[in-house]
């Protein structure tokens, strides 16, 4: 017995020294990621691709249907969702790049008093959840003449408007919510980029007699290119995967599909109609769209060019 115990001890020591060796230990450190990647990422992606070729009536009642789910994408709801997602992504990027960029450039001026307070104030909306912010805007965009945005346009003798029931005003409400929550975050990104620009560039431009606008377009913007690419990339992901904002305004069904984004469509067909095969097909197209738009965007910026 005593001999056995000793041999177990020796074994444990041996195992421990193997685990602790520089050959094995790295894999133990990265193991949590490998497991989650396989279980919660690779497996779901593969099963999503498979499901997109199936008709799933119940957990066990599954039939292979070929490309049928993809052919079914040619319907007005899908077109509508595509349009909403593309337009939303485009509009949010069109606002959330130049607007924060200009504000960041102005905030970077050391002579500006209270710049930390301004930066923090603009950052505050990022702390709210989509739902909390959505609650505010949902009621601020109320149909009543007394609701906030109707009161504002009332000052100019306009309205009242049924904001969340119209296609373009509904889109406006979505974009406003996004701009409110993200301006401050993008400002901070741009500020970080601005602080990395060597001061000498501006000094030599001063000697050459460049004015502020020239300096902005010829030094600031080109130097910020990596940050602009980064912000555009995350905005493409954010834009195309938008759903909670729409849910906060209209829950899962909106009048005339005005709030139906691609993800909202996935949620609707998957969880409300239990049509998992079709919903997976939407998901796969969404993934392809996001990848394509980003490759296109990165190409446009010359990201893949090696110089």
């Amino acid at each position: 017995m005593g001999f056995n115990r000793v041999s177990i001890k020796v074994k444990i020591k041996k195992i421990y020294s193997v685990i602790n060796s520089v050959e094995v230990v790295p894999y133990i450190f990265v193991l949590p990621f490998i497991i989650t990647f396989l279980v919660f990422f690779l497996y779901p992606i593969i099963s999503s691709v498979i499901m997109s070729f199936q008709n799933i009536a119940g957990f066990r009642d599954v039939t292979f249907v070929g490309w049928k789910n993809y052919r079914n994408l040619l319907n007005p709801h899908y077109y509508s969702a595509l349009k909403v997602s593309f337009l939303y992504t485009f509009l949010t990027i069109a606002i959330l790049i130049p607007f924060p960029l200009i504000l960041a450039a102005l905030l970077n001026n050391k002579l500006l008093r209270g710049r930390n307070i301004f930066r923090s104030s603009l950052f505050m909306p990022a702390l709210t959840s989509v739902i909390v912010a959505g609650m505010f805007f949902r009621f601020a965009f109320g149909t009543q003449p007394t609701a906030l945005f109707n009161q504002i346009i009332g000052f100019f003798g306009l309205g009242p408007i049924t904001w969340l029931q119209g296609r373009s005003t509904g889109m406006l409400a979505l974009v406003v919510l996004c701009v409110w929550r993200w301006t401050g975050v993008n400002i901070v990104y741009f500020l970080a980029g601005l602080q990395g620009i060597p001061q000498e560039l501006y000094e030599s431009a001063d000697i050459d007699g460049a004015n502020s606008l020239q300096k902005f377009f010829n030094i600031t913007i080109p130097s910020l290119k990596p940050v602009i690419i980064f912000v555009t990339t995350i905005s493409v992901f954010g834009g195309f995967s938008m759903f909670a904002e729409s849910f906060a305004y209209w829950t899962s069904r909106s009048p005339g599909d005005i709030g139906l984004t691609l993800v909202a469509y996935i949620y609707q067909t998957g969880f409300n109609n239990n049509n998992f095969g079709f919903a997976s097909a939407i998901g796969i197209t969404l993934l392809i769209i996001i990848m394509m738009v980003n490759v296109l965007q990165l190409n446009l910026f010359g990201f893949f060019k090696k110089d």
């Binding site: 497996y43 992606i45 992901f237 759903f243 997976s280």
Partner: peptide, 19 residues
């Protein structure tokens, strides 16, 4: 790691739900 960062979780909603 970088690739996973690039895929929005919303796409995995249904298969993860089944999982």
């Amino acid at each position: 790691v970088l690739l996973v960062m690039m895929v929005p979780l919303e796409i995995l909603l249904l298969p993860l739900y089944r999982l």
